[in-house]
Design a protein around this nucleic acid. Structure first.
Lengths: 241, 241
DNA sequence: GCACCGAAATGGTGTCATTTTTTTATCAGA
DNA sequence: TCTGATAAAAAAATGACACCATTTCGGTGC
């Protein structure tokens, strides 16, 4: 059995194990999972641990558990895929180009609008945070790719915060996860990091000058470039060599 | 007391009760909630019910529960406010104009882009669903406001489905909740239901003719009208009489 | 100031209760 | 006598509960 040594509680480990298994498609939709008793045997834990894991996953919309009926996997439409845990499990198990494309389509909806709002509100502290991230991008450029990635992510997330809208801010984990994966893919071709930093600078500049439409367009261009790259990959798979 | 629906399980009722209480701000952030034992007393249930409710809410990012430390409310940033349950609790407890505005800002990010994608894919079945919703809007116009509201919601959700992107589709519950509240507010002033139906028709028309940019613009205009109304309300509160 | 001990809170277990479905048995009608 | 339907009973799964274990923070004593 694949018991992960963590300092997490038993229920949390069970949740991760079961969640991952479901995301991986090890249990068919609308089919009953093994009963709690069987899961206890399989994982070598008590029923409480299994039950709390079941509750956690049903809180995320992944399964339903009713008396006599047993535990059932709900159709994927019902899953709270914006949930950080679910996102992580999805990407770890299913890092397909198709998901990457859908990620970027979502980002292209969210982030330009967030930039628009950020330009309207222009809270100095929030702008300072964006500035800091951009500076770190510039500093790490060409030298420390890992730090550059971190700074890139911080840049985008700082803008979400600057929108001053709780729903945009909530997309933080979504954006972080999406960026972590997609930047590693798209940076293969973008061998012009100076240009990337400049493009990011345009967004910040528009926000500072409180030009919402400019900020939106600049952010749109930034993400659209990555999206077009992914879509060209999807059209002619295997082009990268 | 406030014992709700009898056909829900004890844990589910506890989850709702506790969730609502937390959303209402009855417990301060970073402060310990009553211990599980006390909650058992307060609600007259066993510890299992309380514990499962705690697990559910921590799966939604609302609380953290550690040994000896007790149960603590996490800062609002950590809450999965896209979760349907959390959304419902939020709106039932805190139906402020501010939240409504943030709802609409989010919709204006999501739905125009979804319409754009829908126009690109133009799956006949999905378009048929949008058509059906629009027809029902037209049929109920001026006669059955409740049916008109239902049809309106179905229209917007059908477009999310037509985007063929799992993340947009997932915004279904968000959109449904937002619309349910916001339409009731904005329809007070919009005494021109024929014009509303026509505006919706423009979106569908653009999708059918596979004109993504037109579809996006039409959807943007549709939501922007409601947003402007809300923002004028926020600027001069109490204008409605 | 350090170490040990105790209390308080969640973590984990075994057992019984409840609900729902399925199967079987009985009765009625052809 | 055979077939069908209905009702009752049993079984299988989750739901609920009381009890014990473990961990961690705080106090106290040396």
């Amino acid at each position: 059995m694949a018991v992960l040594e963590r300092n997490l509680s038993l229920s949390q480990r069970m949740t991760q194990e079961l969640g991952r298994a479901i995301v991986c498609g090890e249990y068919n939709v609308h089919e009953s999972l093994p009963s709690e008793a069987v899961l206890c045997e399989d994982f070598g834990v008590s029923r409480t641990a299994v039950r709390e894991a079941v509750k956690m996953l049903s809180a995320k919309g992944m399964i339903s558990s009713r008396q006599r009926q047993g535990i059932r996997v709900l159709p994927e439409e019902e899953w709270n895929i914006l949930d950080p845990d679910l996102l992580r499990w999805s990407l770890e198990s299913n890092p397909s180009m198709r998901v990457l494309q859908e990620f970027l389509q979502m980002r292209i909806a969210i982030e330009p609008e967030a930039a628009w709002l950020a330009a309207r509100h222009a809270n100095p502290e929030r702008i300072q945070a964006i500035h800091g991230a951009l500076d770190r991008m510039e500093a790490a450029r060409g030298k420390d790719p890992e730090a550059a990635l971190e700074a890139d992510i911080d840049f985008h997330i700082s803008i979400l915060y600057a929108s001053e809208n709780r729903f945009f801010i909530r997309m933080r984990d979504f954006t972080r996860t999406a960026l972590n994966v997609s930047i590693r893919h798209t940076n293969v071709i973008k061998s012009n990091p100076a240009g990337v930093v400049a493009d990011h600078g345009k967004v910040l500049d528009a926000i500072e000058r409180q030009q919402p439409d400019e900020a939106r367009d600049a952010m749109y261009a930034l993400i659209d470039e990555a999206l077009r790259f992914i879509e060209s990959e999807l059209d002619q798979p295997g082009k990268t060599a």
